[in-house]
Design a binder for these strands. Structure first.
Length: 311
DNA sequence: TCCATTTGACCGTA
DNA sequence: TACGGTCAAATGGA
């Protein structure tokens, strides 16, 4: 995949990402100390302000990273290619036999994404700040309620590959578990990406910070994933402190990853021919704990290198 | 008539 | 081979 301007773009992108992460790490550290000694200190920022700043920092980082993912571009191309294939089929026939022919011809029409950037939230509403179109519903084995499938309405005009799956919770039918797959690449300026309006900062935290959620101490992950946000809100101060520890360590680890990334950039820049479009993210980060947990970016074949480049 | 949703069938992955 | 994700024709509402 030839993306000539990709190195320069990455360079600026990297700087921005690093700046955002450093900022986020700084705020997280402040928050941590604030939680350890919750005295009235009017000089420093309040916890809420700090949380907002951390969230903004990570949102910005994610946004930058996703907007420069070549994989997203290639994905859109793949989509439009597939679509055109289907459209040809669609327009060429009509009548009784069409359905069967069409069904046969559908082979290769779509490619299921393998591992993409996914994260889940549990909420009483399925609404968020994006427009979604429902494209399917499926009964799931051992699940009481069907799962609904949504794609971004900008899929075809802007090639946005974001999708979400919504499933009603079995134990609490009022609540929905929403799984987001992929980040929005559409440019809907009026609607800030991944900001849940009716949520408090911690809910938003879960929405935005899939990678951080992975860093939530074991045992809390499940609760964060499967229980309602109310439960999350009731987390004790100690838990919050743990969380800020996690954020801090996430920032620190990510920082070292990025430094390594920066150091090895020439290798990154050389496209590896003949690779198999594998799960770049996991290969790339399989060397450290952080990697397997964080930055699980899936470049979907566009960012064509693997771990061997680093060795 | 257009657009969103429903639904049955197809297809990829484990 | 079963399950789950996606497609696209059919359907219904505005």
């Amino acid at each position: 995949m030839g993306t000539p301007n990709w190195p320069e773009k990455l360079s600026t992108t990297r700087k921005k990402v690093i700046r955002e992460l450093v900022e986020g790490q700084d705020y997280a550290t402040q928050l941590k100390s604030l939680l350890h000694r919750p005295t009235e200190d009017h000089e420093s920022l309040s916890t809420e302000e700090l949380v907002s700043k951390i969230l903004r920092s990570f949102s910005e980082t994610l946004s930058v990273l996703s907007s420069c993912e070549p994989g997203e571009v290639s994905q859109s191309q793949a989509v439009s290619h597939a679509d055109s294939h289907c459209d040809v089929r669609r327009s060429e026939d009509s009548g009784e036999s069409r359905k069967r022919l069409a069904a046969k011809d559908r082979r290769g029409c779509y490619k299921r994404r393998k591992t993409s950037h996914t994260w889940a939230i549990v909420s009483h509403t399925t609404d968020d700040d994006h427009e979604w179109r429902k494209y399917g519903q499926k009964e799931i084995l051992n699940a009481k309620y069907p799962r609904s499938y949504f794609r971004c309405t900008r899929k075809y005009d802007q090639g946005c590959g974001a999708t979400k799956q919504v499933q009603r919770m079995e134990d609490d039918p009022q609540m929905f578990q929403t799984t987001y797959i992929g980040h929005h690449t559409c440019r809907d300026i009026l609607k800030a990406p991944q900001i849940i309006t009716d949520s408090d900062p911690w809910e938003t935290f879960l929405v935005n910070s899939d990678t951080m959620m992975m860093n939530i101490p074991a045992g809390k992950q499940d609760r964060a994933l499967s229980s309602s946000t109310t439960t999350i809100k009731q987390e004790s101060l100690e838990s919050l402190s743990d969380l800020t520890d996690s954020i801090s360590s996430f920032g620190t680890n990510l920082w070292s990853e990025l430094k390594a990334f920066e150091f090895l950039e020439p290798a990154v820049m050389s496209p590896k021919t003949g690779s198999d479009n594998g799960d770049v993210g996991s290969t790339m980060y399989s060397c450290t704990d952080t990697c397997s947990l964080s930055l699980d970016m899936d470049f979907e074949g566009g960012f064509d290198f693997d771990g061997s480049e680093f060795l």
